[in-house]
Simulated assay, not measured.
Amino acid sequence: MSPDDPDRPDDGAYERLLVLPDDLRSELKTPLGPIETDAEVLLEEIDGPLITVGDVVTYHFLEADYTPHVALVDERTKRQQVDEEIRDTVVAETDLEAVNPPAELSTDVIDVLLEGLDADGSTTILVEGEEDLVALPAIVAAPDGASVVYGQPDEGMVHVVVTDDVRAEVRDLLERFEGDVERLWAMLDGTH
């Protein structure tokens, strides 16, 4: 997304924390866990809090009568508007909003992610921009045994069970982002 793209949030509306470098893009296309196409099957494997990243993923769980602990949505799928039924379902109970441009992680989205993880009930976060990369800090911040589920375009839902090993793998990926990685770690410090 170029700086003059009309869909890009105003720079004054958020504080940039990390930017995805071009050389890491292809590596992030490799799923961090097994891929499943049926939310009902995934629910059998989930034992602990569920964090969903993506409108279609969140929609599938809501349609299976399961509300995620934290759901991050942006009203888009594969860079296109989601259809009206999906949008209406996933944003019906929006609790928090955050600004997070594509290929970036903002302090705003990290703050609301942490607020959602700390909440007693379920939290839906509507992201202005793009929520895709938030799966990474969600994996780092989520408690052991939590499930982070995100979409893999044209394949299904990736299920990541949070463990120390997976968290370390994701921390290594985030270390390779451009920006203030130390500030990210300071924000996430104390989540375990």
Rank of each mutant, 00 (worst) to 15 (best):
G54C: 06
G54L: 07
D55A: 04
T58W: 00
Y59W: 10
H60I: 06
F61K: 08
D65C: 08
T67M: 01
P68T: 09
H69C: 00
H69I: 06
H69F: 01
L72R: 11
L72C: 12
D74Q: 11
D74I: 09
E75P: 06
K78T: 10
K78L: 13
Q80W: 11
Q81V: 12
D83A: 13
D83Q: 14
D83M: 14
E84H: 11
E84A: 11
E84Y: 05
E85N: 13
E85P: 02
I86P: 06
I86D: 06
R87H: 06
R87C: 03
R87M: 02
R87K: 12
D88A: 15
D88N: 15
T89N: 07
V91T: 15
V91A: 10
A92T: 14
E93N: 14
T94N: 06
D95G: 03
L96C: 02
L96Q: 01
L96F: 04
E97T: 15
A98L: 07
A98W: 03
A98D: 09
V99S: 08
N100H: 07
A103D: 14
A103P: 05
E104K: 06
E104P: 01
E104F: 01
L105V: 11
S106D: 10
D108W: 10
D108G: 12
V112Y: 05
G121M: 01
S122V: 12
T124N: 02
T124F: 06
T124V: 14
V127K: 09
G129T: 15
G129R: 14
E131Y: 11
D132T: 07
D132A: 03
D132K: 00
D132M: 03
D132G: 02
L133I: 02
L133Q: 03
V134K: 01
V134S: 01
L136F: 01
A138V: 09
A138G: 10
A138D: 08
I139T: 09
P143W: 02
P143Q: 03
G145A: 03
S147E: 04
V148N: 07
Q152P: 01
E155Y: 10
M157F: 07
M157A: 05
V158P: 02
V160E: 03
V161S: 14
V161Y: 07
V161N: 12
V162F: 10
D164P: 08
D165L: 01
V166A: 05
V166I: 13
V166N: 03
R167I: 02
A168T: 07
E169I: 08
E169L: 07
V170S: 06
V170Q: 12
D172Q: 15
L174A: 00
L174Y: 04
L174W: 04
E175G: 00
F177G: 04
F177Y: 15
F177N: 05
E178M: 13
V181R: 08
E182T: 14
E182R: 13
E182W: 09
E182Y: 10
